[in-house]
Amino acid sequence: MSDKAIISPLPGVFYRKPSPEEGNYVEEGQQVEAGDVIGLVEVMKNFHEIKAQESGTVESFLVENETVIDAGQEVAKLK
């Protein structure tokens, strides 16, 4: 198992960008370090940053921008 994942600890609406006018936090193929913000989750009328738990290359996002996700759901695969 070399595959790693970025998991959202929270349920809510997942966003890949900090605001509608800005670009994505990270693109597929990009390198991330542990603690880098890769998206936002909106729940209970607040936005919470989702951070990479370990470093790696973002292989693919597993959820679309602005979809509702579960707590503990994998949002991206890392290599």
């Binding site: 349920p11 509702v68 996700i69 579960d70």
Partner: peptide, 11 residues
């Protein structure tokens, strides 16, 4: 109501 408190968004 105690059970309601344990329900998450998207459930």
């Amino acid at each position: 109501l105690s059970h309601m408190a344990q329900i998450k968004t998207n459930e």
